[in-house]
Amino acid sequence: MKRVLSLFFIAALGVLLLYVVASMPPMGDPQTPTATHVIPRYLERAEEETHTENVITGVILNYRGYDTMGEVTVIFCALAAVLAVLGRERRGRIRGFVDRSPVPSSTIVRTMVRFMVPFIILFSVYTILHGEISPGGGFQGGAIIGGSMIIFTTVFGLYESSRRIPQKVRAPLEGSAVIVFFLVGALGLVGGGNFLTYAWPHAARGLQPALVTWLTVLVEVGIGLGGAMVLISILFAMIREEEEIALTA
């Protein structure tokens, strides 16, 4: 009965959505409301208004920076949720941890990872700093750092990686994205604008482009670091959980 009901519900929803999609304004038509209302201003004036070449970065960090602040909070929230369910490792690094992965990694893999990880991190720095002018940015860069640590941890184990990035480092940096946003927002107030104003009205006109650029970079770095730390902490929490299961089993 329940199954039939939910099937019915889903079918109804599907039909509804199909119906709507059919009656929506055509994709890509330059005359649709989306293409004529807000977008043109972004495309035409973003560069002079936000002093960022990459319009997307301009929109997500500047025009709609507040949304992005919410999104980085969502990411942080995901970490908090994981920690709430799995619990955090004890203060300091994890002691007495031995690499219990069923397959001890070979020398080739170890050497390669040791060789690659610095490059990956270098690349992520590039991505973060370049977000302002080309595709990329804090989210992507942070994900890349996180990815590098995932590789490192799978090969060398939790002990090694938590020795390199201990909780002492992660705990203050996990929320760096939100903190940086708040900082930039509050500085906007000091500069005479509203919250999250990058181009301070009180600042000299000639100084504004540089100001915006540097603040944007600051935000990008914050997002990158925060995102990376969140990923790493989630990874550690999950591995720890597996460890506990393995120990009890």
């Binding site: 397959v103 070979s106 060789f115």
Partner: peptide, 17 residues
């Protein structure tokens, strides 16, 4: 580099398992 290493790692762990 990475492709070769990956192939090695997967094959090796499959073997060991």
């Amino acid at each position: 580099l990475s492709s070769a290493t990956c192939g090695h790692a997967i094959g090796r762990s499959a073997l060991r398992r």
